[in-house]
Design a protein around this nucleic acid. Structure first.
Lengths: 145, 145
DNA sequence: CTTTGTGCAAACGATTTGCAGGATG
DNA sequence: CATCCTGCAAATCGTTTGCACAAAG
């Protein structure tokens, strides 16, 4: 766990970011999760035991991390911006019952061919978003919304 | 144009929606466009000549249309919710320079196989989002953000 | 010590809500 | 005519900003 912490510190420095406790906490937390928490979720997670970061700080830390490419935002539902420390290309699965989000490895859908785009469009990257039901929300008998 | 109007009225009625001038205008406008306007863009377009709809009405019309499946929302950038009267499955292209959004026909990427999902996940639908440059923003020499 | 980040509270923009009057079926 | 919709303004929610103080390099 300490090695991991050192790693995070090193990464932040490498990107030219000052290492503050708040930034460290936000980034370490994001790296520890794969469910793309919202800003609010990050804040309440970090402040669970003791108040460590104000909400303005969370947002500014997220922006700083985004600016250097350590974090990206994920938009899958209205009105909520989620954050993801996994900046490698990957796809998303969203359970339409409980809203849970699962990362899908890149190789699941890597067969998309960007050279087939309509004339004039040059594609650089793509991402697949799948809607469905997660393991806990199987619509076996009772259909979920 | 009048036949189209009749068609729109008929569709609204069929879905059990009262046909009001505002609802008609919102839906007809959305059907006339393929660039997924925001609520604000819809409002200013409709009020271009004469004030016809308040912003609360636009939102409630959009919700009513969404509820009956005539309109869906499209989330491709932060903080903006776009609306789309094309509820047939299709993909999206977003120019990362000017932000323009283009629909991509379904058949461009229909080769995705949802049976390959990780165990426990049951996929129902998917959508591909492509980032790149549109015809007016080709990064020939000067790179865009 | 200089630069950059933090915390607070107020500002902001998009969306929602409550309620009285008005239009639809 | 009963029901549902509109318009207005106020409320709400997530995010951003301004500024004084504090911490990082």
């Amino acid at each position: 766990m300490n090695e991991q912490a050192d790693g995070v510190i090193h990464i932040l420095k490498e990107k030219g970011l000052r290492v503050t406790p708040q930034r460290f906490a936000v980034y370490a937390y994001l790296r520890s999760r794969s469910d793309h928490p919202t800003a609010e979720q990050i804040q309440s997670a970090l402040n669970q035991n003791a108040p460590t970061s104000s909400q303005a700080t969370i947002y500014s830390a997220l922006q700083a991390l985004r600016k250097v490419g350590l974090v990206r935002e994920v938009l899958l539902e209205e009105g909520v911006c989620r954050y993801d420390a996994n900046v490698e290309p990957h796809h998303h699965f969203r359970c339409q019952s409980c809203g849970a989000i699962t990362d899908l490895p890149w190789q699941f859908f890597q067969q998309v061919d960007l050279s087939q785009l309509p004339p004039g469009l040059r594609g650089e990257a793509y991402e697949v978003t799948v809607r469905g039901w997660c393991d806990r929300c199987q619509p076996t008998h009772s259909q979920a919304k």
